[in-house]
């Protein structure tokens, strides 16, 4: 059973079509990256999955219709929709009290053990914590909930590198297992690409690519040819070519590694490079950390 199953999912705001009939099937035990530029429809898709907005088409999450059964769904699904959505006036202790009060699957001792490893004092109000600490607190709350699906929408935006690294490390080591599924969107693709099992590229409300990391590795190869093999490599028809420190780098789709290896250095392409290639270079001359 797929934990998310969508057919023809569509959402329109006035005349603007935010999500234009997408099909999704996300299985249990996957870590899926939903990747796309701003305004591509990522957040709208997540909002529909989380029961925050009504939608057209068919969508089942953990077997529920998210819009009609949000309360039931939220017993199975956790989400961090944004950094800094914890109320500033809330005391850390009261945050634990409240989630314990309303969530049947919250394990308070687990959250407390996690918080004990941080510098977050139980007496502090959220407003007194640094942005990184707020993210840690939210993660502590979410990880202590025994949910089947965790949805993260830009969970580390604006955090410094140490917190970002620690965030994903905790998530992998202390939370993820074969019965859980994680769906994550982020602009900092480089940081998550090593933990993802699947990627979905989305643009203009449509899915451009949906593949497992294994598929991608089998299909795409990045080659940095030696100077004398550049022309020979070009003849093999790279899907795109760019320069790194003045040296050409080529991306091949479905060309056997055995052909390419003798021409230079071959690597697994980065998700970001693949993304840029698929979305068209002209739009992304300077890819980087968008706001």
């Amino acid at each position: 059973m797929n934990c998310i199953e969508a057919t023809g999912l569509r959402k329109q705001y006035g005349k603007k079509i935010a999500v234009d009939g997408i099909d999704l099937g996300i299985g249990t035990g996957r870590i899926v990256g939903l990747i796309g530029p701003n305004g591509a429809g990522k957040t709208t898709t997540l909002d529909a999955i989380l029961g925050l907005i009504p939608f057209e088409g068919s969508l089942k999450v953990m077997g529920c219709d998210p819009w009609r059964e949000r309360e039931r769904l939220m017993r199975e699904v956790s989400f961090i929709a944004d950094v800094a959505v914890l109320p500033r006036w809330l005391k850390v202790r009261n945050a634990l009290d409240y989630v314990q009060g309303v969530h049947p699957r919250f394990d308070r001792s687990k959250a407390e053990r996690f918080l004990a490893r941080t510098d977050i004092p139980m007496k502090a109000k959220v407003g007194q914590l640094s942005k990184g600490m707020v993210a840690q607190l939210h993660l502590a709350l979410v990880m202590a909930i025994d949910a089947r699906l965790l949805v993260l929408d830009e969970p580390t935006l604006g955090l410094d590198i140490l917190y970002r690294r620690a965030f994903y490390t905790s998530l992998l080591n202390d939370y993820f297992d074969q019965e859980r599924t994680i769906l994550v969107t982020t602009h900092q693709v480089e940081e998550v690409q090593d933990i993802l099992t699947d990627v979905i590229f989305i643009d203009h409300g449509r899915i451009i690519l949906s593949a497992t990391m294994d598929d991608i590795e089998a299909r795409y190869v990045e080659l940095m040819p030696r100077l004398e093999t550049v022309d020979a490599a070009r003849k093999l028809g790279p899907v795109t070519e760019y320069a790194v420190f003045g040296r050409p780098v080529m991306l091949f789709d479905g060309v056997a590694r055995g052909h390419l290896a003798p021409m230079g250095e071959i690597r697994r392409p980065g998700i970001a490079d693949l993304f840029v290639m698929m979305m068209g270079r002209d739009r992304y001359e300077a890819p980087g950390e968008a706001a």
């Binding site: 989380l50 949000r70 769904l73 939220m74 956790s78 929709a81 800094a84 959505v85 914890l86 109320p87």
Partner: peptide, 17 residues
Amino acid sequence: RERTLLFWKSLPVSDAH
């Protein structure tokens, strides 16, 4: 406005409640 709605809605409390 404080976006805390996204936290409250992540918990199994219906809007009616």
